[in-house]
Lab assay of single mutants.
Amino acid sequence: MAAGGDHGSPDSYRSPLASRYASPEMCFVFSDRYKFRTWRQLWLWLAEAEQTLGLPITDEQIQEMKSNLENIDFKMAAEEEKRLRHDVMAHVHTFGHCCPKAAGIIHLGATSCYVGDNTDLIILRNALDLLLPKLARVISRLADFAKERASLPTLGFTHFQPAQLTTVGKRCCLWIQDLCMDLQNLKRVRDDLRFRGVKGTTGTQASFLQLFEGDDHKVEQLDKMVTEKAGFKRAFIITGQTYTRKVDIEVLSVLASLGASVHKICTDIRLLANLKEMEEPFEKQQIGSSAMPYKRNPMRSERCCSLARHLMTLVMDPLQTASVQWFERTLDDSANRRICLAEAFLTADTILNTLQNISEGLVVYPKVIERRIRQELPFMATENIIMAMVKAGGSRQDCHEKIRVLSQQAASVVKQEGGDNDLIERIQVDAYFSPIHSQLDHLLDPSSFTGRASQQVQRFLEEEVYPLLKPYESVMKVKAELCL
């Protein structure tokens, strides 16, 4: 049975990233139509530049190519590739079939990587351009969430054990800070992308030097003109047959890092959902379990974690691919890159769409948070109580021993009897502590235990987050809708 299948058929496997999760716009960027249309555009740009620099290419040939950029006979191309065992030459023939007058000058002087690699770089750039505003929107939604809850005390956790208090907004800023680093890295790697350009079979530009009869300047002009037509500021000066596969490492490393950030955020949300302090959106008709109707599973956060793990592992592909590119190139890269580049971007696209949807509907339960604080705060307040007693004339050592005994009794009630923490009640009825009984409410005010959390939130948002989001103001209103 021949390899390949009808990918629109229910009898043929289709990647869930495309069929179930990723956005239509990201799927289109990695589609065959987008790819092969870009090949034709690159052939047109090459012909236009070659004509401008004096090669015998007519206006009629150029116009014929322009008129057929979208006229792609995919069936013919597939048949040609089956016959020739070469995808680029299959599309040269297919393009030439609908451009008979231009057929002889299509791909003039070029090698397969002229269309293959340059198209990949265009796709990487455009895919990054799709991700950047999506990530900015996630940051914006979380920034709104953090600002609104900047002063809401909550129990902090280290080692997932109760620690000092923080605020809900401050905790959210930990998430935002990681995503801001990801946004900066995505922008950097996007701006650092260079075009492969017009380089020939081993990167020496020998074929173009021959076409222009040894004119170095025209060869350099050709490279520059096509690079500018493709919208790049610069091209690699040095290439082998391909652009260095280190570029793929750079791009997928940034995406993998984004995956790590999203995994951490969504894990926190899942843990908070278990504590009943916070939940992701839950639709009115949504079913959490087929057997347990009360369940409210954090399905979206779980999906993000599941896909983020996949995204983090994909960076190993370009690392290994770059390491086995012998001399000017081997074909070890080809099949692998067809999979890992598309999957990385479709996965990143999915987790950003999902995280935006989550961040637009996060639900906080202040009463649950308050109750958990009441359970733990008495123990945390013991040092403040000791200091207040010393100020009232008591002995630190005597007070410490009193607190120690009462704390152990209260802990026994919590752990052995399943009761509430009654340390404060014990202190309130103990005559030894009568000098500070009137101060206990103040000493137990949760806001006095959150330090500068709310001020940190305000400063972080104003100095770091809002300036970073400013270039994306025009796209901030787009909502994230999930079908599944």
Rank of each mutant, 00 (worst) to 15 (best):
residue 178 D to I: 05
residue 157 F to E: 03
residue 133 P to T: 12
residue 42 L to E: 02
residue 98 C to G: 07
residue 218 K to Y: 13
residue 120 D to E: 02
residue 10 P to H: 14
residue 92 V to L: 08
residue 114 Y to F: 06
residue 423 L to M: 14
residue 131 L to V: 11
residue 397 Q to P: 11
residue 370 E to A: 01
residue 359 S to P: 14
residue 404 R to Y: 11
residue 327 F to N: 12
residue 3 A to P: 11
residue 479 K to E: 12
residue 268 D to L: 07
residue 280 E to M: 15
residue 40 R to W: 03
residue 362 L to W: 15
residue 314 L to W: 03
residue 189 V to I: 08
residue 52 T to V: 01
residue 51 Q to C: 05
residue 224 K to A: 05
residue 471 P to C: 04
residue 367 K to E: 15
residue 295 K to Y: 07
residue 224 K to S: 01
residue 482 L to V: 02
residue 452 R to Q: 08
residue 329 R to C: 14
residue 86 H to P: 08
residue 276 K to P: 00
residue 167 T to S: 00
residue 161 Q to V: 01
residue 215 D to A: 07
residue 336 N to D: 07
residue 117 D to A: 04
residue 124 L to E: 11
residue 408 Q to H: 10
residue 154 T to M: 01
residue 99 C to R: 01
residue 411 A to Q: 05
residue 400 H to C: 02
residue 63 Q to L: 05
residue 102 A to K: 03
residue 32 D to S: 12
residue 365 Y to I: 08
residue 273 A to S: 07
residue 260 A to C: 01
residue 302 E to S: 00
residue 470 K to E: 12
residue 144 D to R: 08
residue 131 L to H: 05
residue 166 T to V: 15
residue 41 Q to N: 07
residue 414 V to G: 09
residue 357 N to D: 13
residue 150 A to R: 10
residue 235 A to H: 04
residue 377 L to C: 09
residue 192 D to L: 00
residue 168 V to P: 12
residue 45 W to H: 01
residue 364 V to R: 07
residue 23 S to C: 15
residue 210 Q to P: 06
residue 396 R to P: 07
residue 115 V to M: 01
residue 379 F to V: 10
residue 297 N to G: 15
residue 187 K to E: 05
residue 233 K to D: 07
residue 146 A to V: 12
residue 117 D to Y: 11
residue 76 M to T: 00
residue 290 S to H: 08
residue 275 L to Q: 02
residue 44 L to Y: 03
residue 334 S to R: 06
residue 233 K to H: 01
residue 372 R to S: 13
residue 353 N to W: 05
residue 208 F to Y: 04
residue 380 M to I: 15
residue 245 R to P: 06
residue 38 T to D: 03
residue 322 A to I: 00
residue 132 L to D: 15
residue 176 I to D: 08
residue 304 C to G: 10
residue 136 A to I: 05
residue 380 M to R: 11
residue 108 L to R: 06
residue 190 R to K: 07
residue 443 L to K: 00
residue 383 E to P: 14
residue 375 Q to I: 10
residue 101 K to C: 15
residue 121 L to Q: 11
residue 287 I to Q: 02
residue 145 F to E: 04
residue 276 K to R: 03
residue 257 S to T: 12
residue 202 T to R: 05
residue 64 E to A: 04
residue 301 S to T: 02
residue 82 K to R: 04
residue 182 D to Q: 08
residue 9 S to Y: 10
residue 118 N to C: 15
residue 395 S to E: 04
residue 197 G to W: 00
residue 430 D to R: 01
residue 72 I to H: 09
residue 203 G to Q: 10
residue 254 V to I: 10
residue 225 M to E: 08
residue 193 L to R: 06
residue 94 T to Y: 12
residue 366 P to V: 01
residue 58 T to A: 03
residue 196 R to C: 11
residue 352 L to A: 03
residue 318 P to V: 01
residue 441 D to A: 02
residue 74 F to A: 00
residue 164 Q to P: 08
residue 219 V to C: 07
residue 259 G to D: 03
residue 345 F to H: 01
residue 19 S to T: 01
residue 305 C to Q: 01
residue 438 S to V: 14
residue 94 T to E: 15
residue 414 V to N: 15
residue 112 S to P: 02
residue 468 L to A: 05
residue 29 V to C: 09
residue 364 V to T: 08
residue 134 K to G: 06
residue 228 E to V: 11
residue 421 N to A: 04
residue 213 E to K: 06
residue 74 F to N: 01
residue 464 E to R: 06
residue 380 M to P: 15
residue 74 F to E: 15
residue 384 N to W: 06
residue 16 P to R: 15
residue 40 R to F: 00
residue 48 E to I: 11
residue 231 G to L: 10
residue 262 V to G: 11
residue 434 S to H: 06
residue 400 H to F: 13
residue 458 Q to G: 10
residue 387 M to V: 13
residue 437 H to N: 12
residue 2 A to C: 06
residue 220 E to P: 04
residue 229 K to A: 12
residue 436 I to P: 09
residue 137 R to Q: 09
residue 461 L to M: 01
residue 382 T to C: 12
residue 173 C to L: 12
residue 52 T to K: 04
residue 356 Q to V: 08
residue 478 V to C: 15
residue 7 H to S: 12
residue 326 W to S: 02
residue 56 P to V: 11
residue 308 A to T: 12
residue 342 A to T: 09
residue 228 E to K: 15
residue 330 T to Y: 03
residue 187 K to A: 12
residue 429 V to C: 15
residue 190 R to C: 01
residue 443 L to G: 14
residue 33 R to W: 09
residue 262 V to M: 09
residue 407 S to M: 07
residue 322 A to N: 00
residue 170 K to C: 05
residue 280 E to F: 01
residue 68 N to F: 01
residue 106 I to R: 04
residue 146 A to H: 00
residue 193 L to H: 07
residue 71 N to P: 11
residue 169 G to T: 02
residue 203 G to F: 01
residue 473 E to N: 15
residue 158 T to P: 10
residue 178 D to M: 00
residue 28 F to L: 03
residue 303 R to K: 11
residue 316 M to N: 02
residue 116 G to R: 04
residue 465 V to G: 03
residue 408 Q to L: 10
residue 470 K to L: 13
residue 27 C to A: 04
residue 405 V to M: 14
residue 172 C to W: 04
residue 312 M to Q: 01
residue 476 M to C: 12
residue 4 G to M: 11
residue 30 F to K: 10
residue 177 Q to W: 08
residue 140 S to I: 01
residue 42 L to F: 14
residue 360 E to D: 15
residue 135 L to V: 12
residue 57 I to G: 02
residue 398 D to V: 07
residue 380 M to D: 00
residue 131 L to C: 01
residue 168 V to M: 02
residue 273 A to M: 02
residue 93 H to V: 04
residue 55 L to I: 11
residue 378 P to R: 10
residue 169 G to F: 02
residue 322 A to V: 05
residue 411 A to Y: 12
residue 443 L to Q: 05
residue 406 L to R: 03
residue 45 W to L: 04
residue 75 K to Q: 00
residue 155 L to P: 01
residue 224 K to L: 09
residue 421 N to E: 05
residue 249 I to Y: 13
residue 28 F to V: 10
residue 324 V to M: 05
residue 273 A to L: 09
residue 208 F to L: 10
residue 454 S to E: 06
residue 134 K to S: 11
residue 76 M to I: 10
residue 46 L to K: 07
residue 84 L to W: 07
residue 280 E to G: 07
residue 463 E to A: 06
residue 170 K to I: 02
residue 238 I to H: 15
residue 376 E to G: 03
residue 107 H to D: 05
residue 227 T to P: 12
residue 177 Q to E: 08
residue 417 E to K: 10
residue 284 K to E: 08
residue 200 G to M: 07
residue 284 K to Q: 10
residue 423 L to A: 14
residue 106 I to W: 02
residue 290 S to Y: 08
residue 405 V to H: 00
residue 100 P to S: 10
residue 136 A to D: 00
residue 66 K to M: 15
residue 460 F to N: 05
residue 258 L to F: 15
residue 116 G to P: 05
residue 254 V to G: 13
residue 174 L to S: 07
residue 272 L to E: 02
residue 133 P to H: 09
residue 432 Y to M: 00
residue 340 C to E: 02
residue 356 Q to R: 12
residue 129 D to K: 14
residue 132 L to I: 09
residue 337 R to Y: 13
residue 381 A to H: 00
